[in-house]
Amino acid sequence: MTQVLVSAASNQTGAGLGAQAFDIVGPVGVVAVRQAVAAAVLLPVARPPLCRMTWTQWWPTLLLALVFGTMNLTLYLAIDRIGLGLAITLEFLGPLTLTLAASRTRPDVVTAILAAAGVYVLVLPGPADDVLGLALGLTAGVCWAAYIVLNRVVGVRLTGLQAPTLASGLCALGYLPVLVTITVAASWDASAVTRAVAAGLLSSVVPYAVDLVTLRTVTPRQFGLLSSAQPAMAALVGLLLLSQPLAVHEWLGIAIVIAANALAVATNATTAPTERAAGQ
C-alpha cells in the first residue's frame, strides 16, 4: 500500500509539473524529455545485459518500451484535449477492467466497484464531444493495464531494474527526433527544461522502480485496484502544488477511494499467499 502511494504521489507531482511545460514544448516534447531522463538515470545504474538476453526476455521488454511511449503520450494528449478529470477517469478503466477480470470472489468485485465509484465521484466527468480525446484516454487505459501485466512478467525474467531501464532507453531512442526538432526550433527555456526534467524523474524513474518492486509482491489484480489512488493523489497534488481548491464531491471521492484501498489491503492480507502460490 505504501509503495503504491509513493508511486502515485511521485507520478502525479511529475505530471503536474510536466503539464506546465505544455505551452512551450507541447505534450510530445514533455514525453520525449521524460523518456530521455529516465534512460539517462537508469542505464548507468541497471546496465541491462544486452548480449546475454534471450528472446523470452527481449519480447516483453520491447512491448514494455512501446507501452511506455504510447501510455504517456496518449494520456498527455487526452489531458490537453478533454481535461484532467475525464482523462484520468478513462485511463483508470484499464487497471479497473484488469481487476474485475481477475476477480474471483464477491469481496473482490465489491472492492473494485467501490474504487470505481470513488474515482467517478472524485472527478464527476461531464459530457465531451471530442471523440479523439476520448479515444486517447481509453488508449492510455489499455496501456496502463498492459503496463501492469508486462511489469509482472519482466520482473520475473530480468533482475533489478534491467527491464524498465532497457525499455526506457528504447523508448527514448524512438522520441529522439522529437528532441532534435524542438532543440533546433529553439523552443526550450529554463522553465520548460526544469519542469520536463522533473516530470522525467518523478513520473518515470521513481514509478518505474517502485512499481516493479511492488508487482513482485502483489498480483496484477491487487495492483490494479490500488492504482485507484492515482486520481485521488492527483486531486491532492492539485490542491497543494497548484493551489486548486477541492470541492465537496472531490473530498468525498478521495474518502471512498481510501476506503476501497483499505479494503483491498485487508483482502490482500488473507488472499495474497494463495494468489502468489497460484501464480508461481
Rank of each mutant, 00 (worst) to 15 (best):
P48T: 06
L122K: 01
A255H: 01
A78E: 02
A167G: 05
L64Y: 05
A185P: 04
A277T: 09
L98A: 06
Q280A: 11
V31H: 01
F22P: 08
G155H: 06
L84Y: 00
T70L: 15
A234R: 07
Y208G: 11
P95G: 05
F92A: 02
G83R: 00
R152N: 08
P49G: 08
D129G: 15
V206P: 09
T183Q: 03
T214Y: 03
A40H: 11
V153T: 13
T2C: 07
V184Q: 14
P245L: 02
I88R: 02
V184L: 10
P220K: 11
A190F: 08
L84C: 00
A40Y: 14
V142Q: 07
W251S: 05
A9Q: 10
R81A: 03
L62N: 04
A39S: 13
L62Y: 03
T89A: 03
I148R: 08
G18V: 03
I88A: 02
A192G: 04
A135S: 12
L75I: 15
V31I: 11
L122N: 01
V206G: 08
A234Y: 01
V119H: 02
A112Y: 04
L90A: 06
A38Y: 12
L166H: 06
R195M: 11
S168T: 09
G224I: 07
T217D: 10
A145K: 03
R276I: 13
V210E: 02
A255C: 00
T54A: 13
C171L: 05
A115K: 05
Q3T: 08
L252W: 03
A46C: 06
G253L: 02
L138E: 12
V121R: 00
G141P: 01
V142A: 12
Y76H: 13
G18W: 01
A260T: 13
V149M: 08
A229E: 03
L132R: 10
A87P: 03
N261R: 13
G118T: 01
Q35T: 09
L84Q: 00
F223I: 01
T274L: 13
A264L: 11
S168E: 06
T99F: 12
L179D: 07
A229N: 07
T165K: 10
L77P: 02
V153P: 02
R276Q: 15
V110P: 02
P245M: 13
S204G: 05
A198Y: 03
A190L: 14
V31L: 08
V193D: 04
T271S: 10
A15S: 12
D130K: 13
A112C: 14
A229T: 14
L73A: 13
L124T: 14
I148E: 04
L73G: 07
I254A: 12
T217P: 01
L84H: 01
L138R: 14
P245K: 14
N261P: 13
V109M: 08
A36W: 14
A101Q: 08
A269Q: 15
P44M: 09
L215M: 12
